[in-house]
Amino acid sequence: MRFGILVFPGSNCDHDCYHVLKHVMGQDVRYIWHKDGDLKGFDCLVLPGGFSYGDYLRTGSIARFSPVMDDVVSFANKGGLVLGICNGFQILTESGLLPGVLMMNKDLKFICSDVNLKVENNSTVFTSGYKAGEVISLPIAHGDGNFFIDGPELAALRDRDGVVFTYSTAEGEVSPEANPNGSVDNIAGIINKAGNVLGLMPHPERASESILGGEDGRVLFQSIIEGFVLS
């Protein structure tokens, strides 16, 4: 399976994603510079974390107009798999591939810590390796992770099981106390209607080796690869 990792000016988790996919998961991985638009031959694109274009104007808003993004949107519309992590999630909402928006954390602080997440939907190609309702631990590192979506759109997202991860307690309770950044309904990750574009604020690539503190994130990459082999 061939993964492409998009690199924007200011991406800083691109090498982490490359390392995990190449050396931990043993996959074919290439970097794609944001000015190079040829996405032929790729099976899954990863938009990594970072601070593309210095987060100017709004997070992800300038990267969304990078030359490669038109091709990413076509790739996604043809059913190609797209995974957006942290800043990648912000770019996906700005580009319209995912609904909602990521705003500044409610306490105005950049948060860097491990959080518990509840797997709300394990019937996606990205999460099939998790159990339904399983609580996992992944790190977050963001200043703008406060997911907002208006009432009707939230209802539509809920109706189609678009919410994939929520911030929860270790017992799986999705409570205000477990919400680190003020996200509506504790939402940490969502998927599009077609089921091929996932965005999440936590960093699975930083929790894919036990020596680095956890392996819960590896299950996400494993799910993608196993799903691809079966298809």
Binding site: T93, E94, V101, I149, D150
Partner: peptide, 8 residues
């Protein structure tokens, strides 16, 4: 398209 995000 760019200067504002009509969602918010």
């Amino acid at each position: 398209r760019l200067l504002a995000n009509p969602v918010i």
